[in-house]
Simulated assay, not measured.
Amino acid sequence: MADPLLQVEGLRVEFRTRDGVAHVLNGVDFHVDAGETLAVLGESGSGKSVTAGTVMGILPTPPAAVTGGSVRYRGEELLTATPERRRELRGEHIAMIFQDALSALNPVFTVGFQIGEQLRTRRGMSKRDAEKRAVELLDVVGIPGARQRVHDHPHQFSGGMRQRVMIAMSLALDPDVLIADEPTTALDVTVQAQIMDLLAEIQAERHMALILITHDLGVVAEVADRIAVMYAGRIVEHGDVHSLYANPGHPYTRALLESIPRVDTKGTSLAAIRGLPPSLTRIPPGCPFHPRCPMAAQRCADELPPLVLLPGERASACLFAEELVSP
Results as ranks from 00 to 15, higher is better:
5 L>C: 06
30 F>A: 02
304 L>P: 09
105 L>W: 04
33 D>R: 07
199 L>E: 02
223 V>F: 00
93 H>R: 14
130 A>K: 05
87 R>L: 05
181 D>N: 04
268 T>L: 14
16 R>M: 08
131 E>L: 15
302 D>Q: 15
257 L>M: 09
224 A>T: 03
5 L>H: 02
37 T>Y: 06
282 R>V: 11
217 L>Q: 00
119 L>W: 12
116 G>L: 05
80 T>G: 09
241 V>E: 05
187 L>R: 07
204 A>W: 09
163 Q>K: 01
80 T>L: 02
131 E>M: 14
25 L>N: 08
206 R>E: 01
52 A>R: 03
128 R>M: 03
260 I>R: 14
47 G>E: 03
199 L>W: 01
241 V>Y: 05
273 I>K: 14
16 R>S: 01
64 A>I: 01
213 I>V: 10
52 A>Y: 02
272 A>T: 15
319 L>Y: 07
307 L>I: 14
240 D>A: 03
298 Q>T: 12
35 G>H: 05
226 R>C: 01
323 E>C: 06
107 P>H: 02
180 A>D: 02
320 F>T: 06
124 G>D: 11
247 N>L: 11
91 G>K: 02
79 L>W: 01
126 S>M: 04
92 E>Y: 01
74 R>M: 10
276 L>H: 13
204 A>G: 08
72 R>A: 05
322 E>Q: 15
180 A>N: 01
133 R>Y: 10
91 G>F: 12
11 L>A: 02
2 A>G: 05
186 A>K: 00
320 F>A: 13
95 A>M: 02
192 Q>G: 08
181 D>F: 04
299 R>Y: 04
14 E>M: 01
57 G>L: 05
62 P>C: 06
173 L>C: 11
296 A>Y: 04
325 V>K: 04
78 L>E: 00
82 T>I: 13
105 L>E: 06
243 S>I: 04
142 G>P: 12
130 A>G: 13
229 V>S: 01
156 Q>T: 12
242 H>C: 02
20 G>F: 07
282 R>D: 15
129 D>R: 15
236 V>T: 04
198 L>Q: 08
160 G>N: 10
150 V>K: 12
195 I>S: 10
279 S>G: 12
177 V>A: 00
123 R>A: 13
256 L>Q: 05
287 C>D: 09
138 L>H: 13
157 F>P: 09
261 P>H: 12
72 R>L: 07
168 A>Y: 11
26 N>V: 07
170 S>M: 05
247 N>K: 15
13 V>G: 03
234 R>Q: 15
212 L>I: 01
239 G>R: 09
77 E>Q: 11
160 G>H: 09
317 A>G: 14
76 E>F: 01
296 A>W: 11
204 A>L: 03
123 R>Q: 14
138 L>G: 12
231 Y>D: 06
40 V>A: 00
98 F>I: 03
135 V>F: 12
108 V>W: 00
158 S>R: 13
116 G>F: 12
138 L>V: 08
61 T>Q: 07
224 A>Y: 08
115 I>D: 13
296 A>P: 13
26 N>T: 00
39 A>R: 07
205 E>Y: 10
234 R>C: 07
298 Q>E: 15
16 R>Y: 01
178 L>G: 01
273 I>E: 10
155 H>W: 14
196 M>I: 15
148 Q>I: 14
141 V>I: 15
112 G>T: 13
252 Y>D: 07
297 A>Y: 07
120 R>H: 08
211 I>Y: 03
